[in-house]
Write a protein that binds this DNA or RNA. Structure first.
Lengths: 110, 110
DNA sequence: TTTTTTGGAAACCGTTTGGTTTCATTTATA
DNA sequence: TATAAATGAAACCAAACGGTTTCCAAAAAA
């Protein structure tokens, strides 16, 4: 659990980490506040947060005895772009133009 | 390696599997053709393909002695949509207010 | 000053992952 | 028919993963 350069795809593969991301996207929390949302132990949550920091999705900032965890999810752009590369597989009426226009975030389906 | 219902996030976390996806998105290939693109052994590639089939990203079809592997990447829509949930982190056009209003307040516990 | 809060760190553990090699089976081909 | 090709399946392995408990140190609060 000490990979120097962590891959963002690997980081988001764990559902607990995705939930941590969801939590921190709302607001910054200290470590215990994050851990309170889960049934797993506080050290387990700390390990997940370390993984998230290793790929840049979370930054931590110590103030006093507290460690504040903040989401910085620019790295998810890479994930979105990668998945959208294959948009034609779920977007039936594809022509090149529409595919180009759909690059803009106005997807309202579902 | 026999998870009945495989998570698509976990499936795409491996770079080799993402490369297999890239290959099969172009055209259907049999197992050996896929394996030829990698330095790892053929059984290793077969295991990756099995994982991809377990989450529906790849379908296989046996004809004669060959196993043809075909991409079916509709499942990546889920990934795209999940990542786009946090688009405000890399898209300047969306401001903090929209981010706040778009929040889904149904995440307590677990 | 004593106590509580916060969290880092280490040791440990069972399971999963990603890989290998080997062997058997089925299907084509020479 | 004998041989080659394509793959499945099994056994095995080291490392990574996700988790735990325990202990320690620093900061804040009583």
């Amino acid at each position: 659990m000490n990979q120097a350069r962590r891959d963002v795809f690997q980081a988001i593969s764990d559902p607990t980490r995705r939930e941590i991301i969801h939590l921190l996207a709302r607001r910054t929390l200290n470590l215990n506040n994050v851990a309170d949302h889960f049934t797993i132990s506080r050290p387990a949550v700390a390990k997940h947060i370390r993984i998230l920091t290793e790929c840049g999705l979370v930054t931590v900032q110590t103030r006093g005895r507290e460690t504040f965890c903040q989401a910085d999810l620019k790295g998810l752009k890479q994930v979105s772009e990668w998945a959208n590369t294959y948009q034609e597989f779920w977007n039936d009426k594809l022509d090149a133009l529409e595919r180009f226009l759909d690059e803009d975030p106005s997807d309202e389906n579902r």
